[in-house]
Design a protein around this nucleic acid. Structure first.
Lengths: 120, 120
DNA sequence: TAAACGATTGAACGATTGCTCAAATGTTAT
DNA sequence: ATAACATTTGAGCAATCGTTCAATCGTTTA
């Protein structure tokens, strides 16, 4: 016998609220995608990379020098950002230049910065 | 002998770009705070909780029932969200009601949702 | 006061993450 | 072809994370 409360050891207190929120709740996929996006942004190295690319297109070496990290570590993070379509790359000879894929991320960052600034 | 490039095995290719971006770069603290904020939001359970609270104030039990998880697991995540000032709580007898602390997070979520929707 | 119940907490665990290191690509210059 | 160099990649490892489980707290009700 299975019920909606299989995984909850307590009874539902406000069934009306639960049902109402459930009816409005977004589908699983966009929820998953949004949390994945935030997860990508939720790392200090990646945040700093995105912030840097917001000012200028940069190559791996320059980002590494700016952030005082190895280019291997930077490259690993750039791959994650590239696969998430947050940044894009173009190769010129041996050098690969990275830049922000679009302006959405900067907008998201500005809102987040505002939020932080108001807190302190 | 220490230099700016101690942690980078390659030479700086575009010194002008690095110096320019370095001069514009935000201080360490807001960068850290923003990445921490995104890290908090970057978990599917917390995303779903925030989404639910965007529709209605809810108690731990109801959130657990809605998301089909134990109230212990929910409570752990609520603590993280509360300590980050993303949600607030009020106790009425045995029941603790949670709601979003302010409208900033919803705004952030809406921007993120827009970004996701455009991608697919 | 004791029992019931919603919520919280801490330890333990398996899973995931971000870095390092070494090796391998890909491209250019000798 | 060979050397040099920017970048990428994969394995390995320590650290962090999210859940479960059991115990506890706080409040209400019998």
């Amino acid at each position: 016998m299975s019920s909606e409360n299989d995984h909850c050891e307590c009874s539902v207190i406000h069934e009306d609220v639960v049902l109402e929120v459930k009816s409005k709740f977004p589908p699983e996929r966009p929820i998953y995608c949004v949390s994945e996006l935030f997860k990508i942004l939720g790392d200090e190295t990646r945040t700093r990379i995105i912030c840097a690319l917001g000012f200028s297109e940069m190559c791996v070496c320059d980002i590494a020098a700016l952030l005082k990290m190895t280019s291997s570590a930077i490259s690993h993070q750039l791959r994650i950002l590239r696969e998430s379509h947050i940044i894009k790359s173009r190769r010129v000879g041996k050098v690969v230049y990275y830049s922000l894929a679009d302006e959405h991320i900067e907008k998201l960052f500005n809102i987040a910065f505002e939020h932080i600034m108001e807190e302190l």
